[in-house]
């Protein structure tokens, strides 16, 4: 009972906030709605017993990706009139794509109703639940069965990093605010200060 209620609550909120992401005029509002959508998606994950995925969804998407999104969007100066003009121009195309996707969804639901949508293995028999916690089972699958793909995904991230650095990093000589910590620490009063006893009425020569 409470699960059903929670499911419909989370699902309705995901959809509503997803709609608001595109409906909101202000891009910052869009991002905030997106965060709400992530949140409710995490709620759905908890409901199906995938609490590890739910936590990761929050940590990665809400905690890092969306913050950076917000970071960029906040600094944008967007011309809304122009944005809406583009919207009108592309409206028919958007509608067409939306119709196709809607048809897809209906097919999906239809198949689900017919009882064909059984996830897991090819024969349609769902994968047996492992006798271990969520985290442990994901770890086992990730590092045993899919270790090849896991490592390859790591290389993809490396490529992304190398790419970002190659395209944006410019080596500047003598950058402002450069600081050599060890030199700073090595300095002692003897080499940094001088004691002078100036005579009255005369300045100090350094």
């Amino acid at each position: 009972m409470i699960q059903t209620l929670a499911f419909y609550l989370f699902a309705a909120l995901v959809i509503a906030s997803a709609v608001m992401v595109i409906m909101a005029r202000n891009p910052v509002h869009s991002v905030l709605w997106l965060i709400l959508a992530f949140f409710n998606a995490a709620g759905l994950m908890v409901l199906v017993g995938a609490e590890f995925i739910a936590a990761l969804l929050l940590i990665v998407y809400v905690g890092a990706v969306a913050v950076l999104f917000l970071f960029v969007v906040m600094m944008l100066d967007i011309d809304f009139a122009e944005l809406r003009a583009g919207f009108v121009k592309n409206f028919p195309l958007g509608i067409a794509i939306a119709l196709v996707l809607a048809a897809e969804l209906i097919f999906g639901i239809g198949a689900y109703q017919a009882g064909q949508l059984e996830l897991g293995v090819a024969s349609g028999v769902a994968a047996p639940a492992l006798d271990a916690s969520n985290t442990a089972s994901i770890g086992a699958v990730l590092y045993r069965d899919y270790v090849f793909l896991f490592e390859a995904a790591g290389i993809i991230l490396l490529v992304a990093m190398v790419g970002a650095i190659v395209l944006t990093h410019r080596r500047t000589e003598n950058a402002r605010g450069q600081q050599d910590i060890s030199r700073q620490v090595r300095r002692n009063p003897d080499e940094a200060t001088v004691m002078k006893q100036p005579e009255v009425g005369r300045g100090v020569d350094l």
């Binding site: 609490e51 929050l58 940590i59 809400v62 905690g63 890092a64 913050v67």
Partner: peptide
């Protein structure tokens, strides 16, 4: 007393930045 308590704390603490960012904006 959940299994992923530490991840939960990490997730929630990563949200605290939103208060600051939202208020600032």
């Amino acid at each position: 007393d959940i299994n992923i308590g530490l991840l939960y704390i990490l997730a929630i603490s990563s949200l605290s930045v939103y208060g600051v960012v939202m208020s600032g904006w």
